[in-house]
């Protein structure tokens, strides 16, 4: 039986990927951020998962405004890094897990989450930066990855509750897959940031720290946060944090916090990273 054993939430700022790609991580601007990633990299390498499900948003790469799926799941064997205008990131191709991905697609749809099924797609910084953050520089990513994209660009994005409930459905669906797999779920994006308008550069560390504090023990408060609260308090693009709730929903209620790291700024953004683990199964 497959099971979700842990979750990791992290920002997916493109500049973090660029800092790695250009070898600038030891510079004074970047060092404190990357130092904070070291324990997470060690944790993930020790855990050695069989599959990672990455919940992220596409930023006009695989999808444009032509078709805007609220929730989409990639079922392909392979996903290439997208060209976002600067040329594709020089990172390895992402290998999928069609077996589990198709099982999730079927099971989620039958559980009333009407997923868009994607056979062919590129993956942008929303997915590759979290992999770089959690795995470091690699010739090949350590395990197969299932991309699960959430629309947070076109209003309205799904509600926090819907995202959390999708996480719940993922947890249930993983359990009904008949291969013995250790699955980790990443929730990505955020934390507070605004990239557009005269209000660009907004950061709200108090909001972020309360979000980090409540994610483990009091997710109910976060599930009920309306979109306007994210936009007003955490910046228009801070709405990405609803994707952290998919990860939280995929973990058990009594999941424990293993690690957290918070740093301002990475380019225009407040960055956060949090790791949650399910308690071991009791016999």
């Amino acid at each position: 039986m497959a099971r979700v054993v842990a979750g990791l939430a992290t920002s997916h700022v493109p500049a973090i990927g660029a800092a790695m790609d250009l070898g600038r991580t030891k510079e004074p601007y970047w060092k404190p951020l990357f130092d904070g990633y070291e324990p997470a990299r060690k944790w993930l390498a020790d855990l050695n998962p069989d599959v990672i499900i990455i919940v992220y948003n596409d930023h006009g790469s695989a999808f444009s405004l032509e078709v805007i799926p609220t929730f989409a799941i990639g079922v392909a064997e392979k996903f290439l890094p997208a060209d976002e205008g600067w040329g594709p990131r020089p990172v390895p191709a992402v290998h999928g897990h069609p077996g589990l991905a198709w099982h999730l697609a079927e099971s989620l749809i039958l559980n009333e989450f009407d997923m868009t099924i994607v056979n062919e797609m590129t993956v942008d910084h929303g997915l590759t930066v979290p992999l770089s953050i959690a795995c470091g520089e690699q010739k090949n990513w350590p395990c197969p990855v299932i991309p699960l994209s959430v629309n947070v660009v076109q209003y309205p994005p799904p509600t926090g509750k819907r995202c959390f409930d999708l996480g719940r459905a993922i947890r249930k669906s993983v359990k009904t897959y008949d291969k013995d797999l250790k699955v980790v779920v990443f929730g990505t994006g955020g934390m507070s940031h605004q990239l557009h308008g005269e209000r660009a550069g907004l950061i709200n560390s108090k909001f972020d720290k309360n979000f980090l504090a409540d994610l483990t023990r009091n997710p109910q408060r976060l599930i009920e946060l309306p979109h306007i609260e994210y936009v007003r308090e955490a910046g228009a693009e801070g709405i990405e944090m609803v994707m952290w709730l998919v990860m939280r929903g995929a973990l058990d209620e009594n999941a424990v916090e293993i690690y957290q790291h918070y740093h301002v700024p990475a380019s225009n953004t407040a960055t956060g990273l949090m790791i949650l683990e399910n308690q071991p199964l009791t016999v």
């Binding site: 507070s192 605004q194 308008g197 005269e198 660009a200 550069g201 907004l202 380019s267 407040a270």
Partner: peptide, 20 residues
Amino acid sequence: MSGVPEEEYRSMMMAGGRPV
């Protein structure tokens, strides 16, 4: 977009960003 030179914006971010 926020109408300031890039260096000034970068300093604002280094100092914790635009306050809410």
